[in-house]
Amino acid sequence: MSVSATKAPPSRGAPAKHASPGRRARYRFARWDLKYSPYLYIAPFFVLFGIFGLYPMVWTFWMSLHDWDLVGTHTFIGLENYTALLSDDYFWNAVRNTFGMFVLATVPQLALALFLANLLNRPLLRARTFFRMIIFVPNVVSVAAVAIVFGMLFQRDFGVVNWFLSLFGVDAIDWRREWWTSWTAISVMVDWRWTGYNTLILLAGMQAIPRDLYEAAAMDGASAWRQFWNVTLPMLRPTFVFVVILSTIGGLQLFVEPLIFNNGNIIGGTQREFQTVQMYMFENSIHNLSRAGYGAAVAWALFLMIVVVSVLNFVITRRSVK
């Protein structure tokens, strides 16, 4: 239904004079329909978002203002949880781990995704559909299954990775022992799962770039590399921003991989080498029942961090590609 339809006068005579009550009702309904129906159409999202998105957030905030025992009593304490958070070493440790693993996983991941997307975008590539499908498969596999399998690959005693490294004379690495070994292993898991996904989004973005731009560039004597750098990348900017923000949101919420990597231990390594913010929140709210309010404060801190980083990402990515 288009807006112009309402403005067109009724085709048969003036409605005010001859209209029967039935016609008038129908006319009123049509007007009502035009005015309010769009809201109804978009309502399901907002209703669901309200119930499952907004409401829990507000409720979590409410929890974070309390000394909240998950299966016991609650006492209002204002912002005490937040002030405690600021001087909590383990919280900042979790923040450092989360950002560290985020950078370690995301930077190579996006570079690889860009490279793969560019390959798949070549018109002369054979069996293109096959490759495009196969690259997405890791993303369909359950994350817990991925974490379990990679956890085995990265075992100290009988792991395949250590066996492979031993061929080059490298001693068995205890992957869960150091921060850098554990971060590497976890980043590999994340990248295995998400590189294909990002490749497809970037590929879709690349295909939306008009071909005549390339033709014009080629006419001006631009090499393939030059075309990629000066045509593809700038035109890909909106897609790239989208991918970066999506990776940020996902990366900062890292939970299942590091948790299962150390056999479900909520504190990560023996000295919390790979405990993420999400895990720290879980440790406080579920493992330590009486600190659920504190856990809620961690959840809100995480939310704010994601907002800040997403905005930063948006600003930086926009500039740099320009």
Partner: peptide, 23 residues
Amino acid sequence: MSVSTRRRRYAAVALATVAALAT
């Protein structure tokens, strides 16, 4: 019981979502 079932349920919904658990 110190907390009504309703409130506990609310708490649960909030927690479950925040925890972003796949379980």
